[in-house]
């Protein structure tokens, strides 16, 4: 995604400004597909800073972000009489935070989906994020950030985060874009889309999100995929609002709806749409 594609709301912008000025980690939550991960990439581009990404998995431990001591390699090398064995620092593997702290330029660190990890994971990072320094036990070094990096943390609400951790962060909840913002986002991606096609598509999309009982609401990225298909097929602008509706849309809905029951609901919605437009 290039610079111009990412639309940032005023609120989010202020949040980022504050996090930059006060050098505090920014915790970002929001519905899937609202561009949480993209935010860090975008900021790094705009302030021209190196970006360090740490994608957290259920097996990730806090230490891995700092460093790891590769004892097994060292043991093996010792068997082969490798010269490197004498210096333990040859076997210290740097983690994301190490690289970010030692970067000459102010860096942007993305800790993606922190809620995926073990429940104690955020607690294990408290000191490191607060002081922006940590000790390397094996070499008795202390790694301190030359410049405090901007830390962006994303969470999908799968686990609650501990209070002590939250206290140290700024928190921003990215709302699902409203219609005007969404139009801006779409315009940034597909500047040449036909206006009337866009309008009908947006109507369908936002109607769809309103449908009660939808298992998975379609998100921004899904709307964009869907529009891409519509554009690629070069549909006539009336296609979404006319009688063809019922035959055309189901060919494309795979981009929007990822669940059988939802598709069912969708079909009903299209039917209603058709009746209303008669």
């Amino acid at each position: 995604m290039s610079n111009a594609d990412y639309i940032i709301t005023d609120e989010l912008q202020q949040a980022v400004d504050a996090a930059l000025t006060l050098e505090r980690p920014l915790l970002v939550k929001g519905e899937p597909g609202t561009g949480k991960t993209q935010l860090a990439i975008e900021i790094a581009q705009r302030i021209d800073a190196p970006l360090f990404q740490w994608h957290v998995k259920s097996t990730t431990r806090a230490n891995q972000g700092l460093y790891e001591y590769d004892a097994v390699s060292r043991l093996r090398d010792s068997q082969l009489g490798d010269e490197r064995v004498k210096d333990i620092s040859n076997y210290i593997l740097h983690g994301v935070l190490w690289d970010a702290f030692t970067s000459d330029q102010r860096a942007v660190v993305l800790i993606d989906e922190i809620d995926k990890a073990d429940i104690e994971f955020p607690n294990d990072l408290l000191q490191e994020l607060d002081r922006m320094s940590f000790n390397v036990y094996e070499t008795r070094e202390t790694i301190t950030a030359k410049q405090r990096p901007l830390v962006i943390i994303t969470s999908n609400n799968e686990k609650e985060l501990p209070d002590a951790f939250l206290r140290r962060c700024f928190f921003h909840y990215i709302e699902f874009p409203d219609k005007p913002t969404m139009e801006k986002i779409v315009a940034a991606h597909y500047p040449s889309i036909k206006q009337d096609l866009l309008k009908s598509a947006m109507d369908v999309f936002f109607d769809l999100r309103e449908v009660p009982g939808l298992k998975k609401k379609p998100s921004t990225s899904e709307l964009l995929d869907w529009l891409k298909l519509l554009i690629a097929d070069d549909l006539p602008s009336e296609a979404l609002g006319s009688d063809e509706l019922r035959t055309v849309l189901p060919q494309m809905h795979g981009a929007l709806l990822k669940n059988e029951q939802d598709v069912h609901l969708f079909e009903r919605l299209i039917f209603l749409h058709k009746q209303r437009n008669r």
Partner: peptide
């Protein structure tokens, strides 16, 4: 408005 946003950013950690 700015104060509102900033206060929320600092104080509230749960949507």
């Amino acid at each position: 408005n700015r104060f509102y946003l900033f206060a929320r950013l600092c104080l509230i950690k749960d949507e």
